[in-house]
């Protein structure tokens, strides 16, 4: 009998004498064994309180709290920035007198996090920032993104707008596009106009409907006219006679999770009609379990499809 079976026997209360002794000697073998036993007992005991556990909507609660504490974007280290900015302006002003005619770069870095409100930059550009995403605006028309955002950039032919992402730089003249970026994965999707992406010395020009996906050093350009990648922004997913592959693709970008189909399941001819707005991922998957008998597993934040029936 392996140690873990012994532990569960012990915790669940019915070890016989031999089992009890086997566990005792295993427990005394090492500090790690003892710790494992303690932790498991604790998890078992705390779990007994699950009967009274109440689920709450953190997102809605945060919005309420945010309304009460003021939802304006926060400038990190405001007090200190005030000082630094004052000093910097002073120094720049004196340089400016001596070398007038040079461009003065405003020494101001703003860090935005998602507040549920659109970010309006000084140049008129509007940015929707998703949850858990951070946008740093270091100077006029230059930002750095980690996470997911939708950009509506004010045109300015003289000064391109650039977005630094984990995989390269996106340069824009005036357009609308969606970016998701983290250390492993970046994705750019253009809904209007043109953007240029530069990474590892390679350039890609993207136009409407182009989706550029970068995983590590692999760059892939695809056309995706019906993409739901921007659905997170409108907070609504709407499917009309859509097959399951596309539905899952939409759900993946809406909830920002990866979805994996078994390799043999290339296409399907399900016809799914449904609409999601404020449902949790869990609720959506449970609904699909009813509609198409979807069987799935969630492993490390990845939804893995096991089977389904149209």
């Amino acid at each position: 009998m392996n140690p873990f079976q012994l532990i569960s026997k012990y915790i669940l209360g019915k070890p016989n004498r031999d089992e009890y002794e086997a566990l005792e000697s295993w427990k005394n073998e090492s500090e790690a064994n003892l710790e494992a036993l303690r932790q498991t007992i604790r998890i078992n005991e705390v779990s007994n309180d699950l009967r009274e556990y109440q689920q709450v909507d953190k997102k809605a609660a945060w919005q309420k709290v945010e309304q009460r504490i003021g939802a304006e974007t926060h400038i990190i280290g405001f007090k200190h920035w005030g000082k630094i900015a004052a000093v910097a302006v002073l120094i720049l002003a004196s340089i400016f007198v001596i070398q007038s005619g040079n461009d003065v770069i405003t020494p101001e870095a703003r860090v935005y996090t998602s507040t549920g409100e659109q970010i309006k930059l000084d140049d008129g550009s509007i940015i929707d920032l998703d949850q858990k995403s951070v946008l740093t605006a270091s100077q006029s028309r230059t930002v750095k993104l980690s996470g997911r955002a939708y950009f509506d950039i004010a045109p300015d032919k003289t000064k391109p707008f650039t977005v630094e992402i984990n995989h390269g730089v996106v340069t824009v003249l005036g357009t609308e596009f969606n970016i998701t970026t983290d250390s492993l994965f970046s994705q750019i999707y253009v809904t209007e106009g043109r953007v240029k992406h530069t990474y590892n010395g390679e350039e890609y020009i993207l136009t409407v409907g182009d989706m550029l996906t970068i995983i590590g050093d692999k760059v892939e350009l695809t056309k995706d006219q019906t993409s739901q990648v921007t659905s997170w922004k409108s907070k609504e997913l709407n499917f009309v006679n859509e097959n399951l592959h596309n539905v899952m693709k939409g759900i993946g970008s809406f909830y920002n999770v990866q979805v994996e189909f078994p390799a043999k399941m290339n296409e399907d001819d399900c016809k799914i009609n449904t609409k999601y707005t404020s449902e949790t991922l869990d609720q959506v998957l449970k609904e699909l379990a009813v509609i198409v008998r979807l069987k799935y597993e969630i492993i490390q934040g990845k939804v893995i499809i096991k089977s389904f029936k149209c």
Binding site: F4, Q5, I7, S8, L12, Q39, T40, S47
Partner: peptide, 13 residues
């Protein structure tokens, strides 16, 4: 049932 419970505790930990 006992086996599942034991496995659940192990995985949760």
């Amino acid at each position: 049932v006992e086996n599942h419970m034991g496995k659940a505790l192990k995985l949760l930990r």
